[in-house]
Design a binder for these strands. Structure first.
Length: 473
RNA sequence: GUAGAUAUAGCUCAGCUGGUUAGAGCGUCGGAUUGUGAUUCCGAAGGUCGUGGGUUCGAGCCCCAUUAUUUACCCCA
């Protein structure tokens, strides 16, 4: 006999867990649909040509590749084996498991460009797979819930993302959250500010190294970031000015102004609208998002934070970027997203702007569990269990069973004529709130006894009035 | 890929410097109640101590290896 097991980083979900997960999905789905997003599903498998190169080198390594069917080794030569796995891969695998929902969506848009009505708004709730080392809040198979819009530059989309995030988290009663927002342009401007002045800082074109290090500021502090930048070839005098740039404080609006003043002081060339404090496009756009939110009646500006250090790993983002954390739980981000100007470009459809974001259902689940916020605990949807004693009473219960179901009350008849004690234990263990007792006495008198499990109270009703009495409650 | 921790009953875990027959709680099953759950009482079943080797008169405990799980780093939902 072998011990059964499931792959690392995957989970089974029992009935109680599924019920709680469905609750999360329902809150998200209702929110997405109320904002006009329509559902889309794409295959679990994508061609590797679609997936590779979209997530950076690290991302490519985390892709699950699927071995070709049949004799997958038939094209492999001895030479391939000596060159190594890189040369071997395209010969043995042409498909992979989807890594996120955004790239398959971009692929879908490019393939169906002729039939879609733009701007195209879709939501998608499906599992994705990453060959990561599992740890807290990190799984190899997990569900994402994405909502994206393609075909418009409007910053209303960004504002609505913030609205949806707040609506979902409030709907889940996870009200202690922080939505961090930044703009890739801000990061670019910061990078430029380091070069705009006279000092030489090291090799140019290493923007990503700067962003990655910057993103860790709140985790490893100034010293840690400085150390990491020096290791990556930036010179010492760069970091001082970097931290000067980041010393912004006050309201969302004030931070934008301070950063604009810093860029001008450092001689960063304006790329924006040219009206005073908004002559940097990134700052202008962030301010626009803020104004649109205010006009939409957004209630949670205390939970929206402009964070110029926020970077996010995925390399395809070009505009606003978001990240959401639950403050009172030790957990990675539960949601993230941003604008990508040219995601469909690599699929032959250039110049289409998209913006979207994603919820990590599994992390939301972990947060809700850590905060003990689940209200759904039932092991079964059954509301009513009919007990019986022998074949005759069991048979006599069937019309009532059908009647209950027709009335929309999920019901079941205990399948065996076991001891009543056993039937009651079954109802209790599964959290079934009502038990109908239908023994020979009840059948003879054309009545049933109904017990409300929570209170322990019982009453006797004529069999014809059962459904009516239960539907009133 | 790098580093650490853990592995004992279905689950969560005790188990003394290495010493007879490895324990508890919860859960399961049976009974107290031949027509009543959760509460109470009584009883029972359930363990090659992850696996393989070594040290020892003697190993759940010490040593080595191996596998699995898990935490952190990198990165990320």
């Amino acid at each position: 006999m072998q011990k059964p097991s499931i792959p690392k980083g995957t989970r089974d979900f029992g009935p109680a867990q599924v019920a709680r997960r469905q609750h999360i999905f329902n809150v998200i789905r209702r929110t997405f649909e109320s904002f006009g997003f329509a559902p889309l599903e794409t295959p679990t498998l994508e061609n590797l040509s679609v997936l590779t190169g979209k997530y950076g080198d690290e991302g490519d390594q985390l892709l699950f590749k699927v071995l070709n069917s049949g004799d997958f080794a038939k094209d492999v030569t001895a030479a391939d084996l000596t060159v190594g796995s890189k040369a071997l891969l395209p010969k043995v695998a042409e498909k992979g498991l989807r890594y996120d929902l955004t790239v398959p969506f971009a692929r879908y848009v490019a393939m169906n460009r002729g039939t879609l009505t733009f701007p195209f708004k879709r939501y998608q709730m499906q599992p994705v797979w990453r060959a990561d080392r599992p740890q807290r809040g990190r799984y190899r198979e997990f569900y994402q819930c994405d909502a994206d819009v393609v075909g418009t530059d409007s910053l209303l989309c960004e504002a609505e993302i913030v609205l949806m995030i707040a609506q979902v988290l409030n709907g889940l009663r996870l009200d202690k959250f922080t939505i961090k927002i930044n703009h890739r342009g801000v990061l670019r401007n910061i990078y430029e500010s380091l070069y705009a002045a006279d000092s030489y800082l090291g090799e140019k074109g290493r923007e990503n190294d700067l962003f990655v290090a910057l993103d860790k500021l709140d985790k490893i502090g100034k010293d840690g970031v400085t150390k990491e930048l020096l290791e990556r070839g930036f010179f010492g005098n760069a970091t001082d000015r970097l931290f000067e740039a980041l010393e912004v404080s006050g309201s969302f609006e004030e931070k934008l102004k301070q950063l604009g003043a810093f860029f001008r002081k450092e001689g960063v060339v304006p790329d924006g609208m040219g009206d005073g404090s908004e002559d940097y496009r990134s700052l202008f756009e962030l301010n626009q998002v803020r104004e649109l939110l205010a006009a939409s009646g957004f209630q949670h500006f205390d939970r929206l934070e402009f964070d110029p250090t926020l970077a996010r790993g995925l390399s395809y983002y070009t505009g606003c970027i978001f990240e959401v954390k639950i403050n009172n739980v030790q957990m990675g981000s539960v949601s993230g997203g941003g604008r990508y100007d040219n995601l469909t470009g690599s699929f032959g459809l250039p110049g289409v702007s998209g913006v979207g974001f994603s919820f990590g259902v599994d992390r939301l689940y972990d947060c809700l569990e850590a905060l003990d916020l689940f209200t759904v605990t039932a092991e079964t949807p059954t509301r009513c269990l009919i007990t019986h004693f022998d074949q005759a009473s069991g048979r006599a219960a069937l019309p009532l069973l059908a009647e209950l179901r027709a009335a929309g009350i999920p019901s079941e008849l205990y399948p065996d004529a076991s001891k009543l004690q056993k039937q009651f234990k079954y109802a209790d263990a599964k959290g079934i709130p009502l038990v109908v007792i239908m023994g020979p006495e009840e059948v003879a008198a054309r009545v049933v006894k109904i017990k409300i499990m929570a209170s322990g109270t019982e009453r006797v009703l004529p069999i014809g009035e059962v459904v009516k009495a239960l539907t009133v409650e």
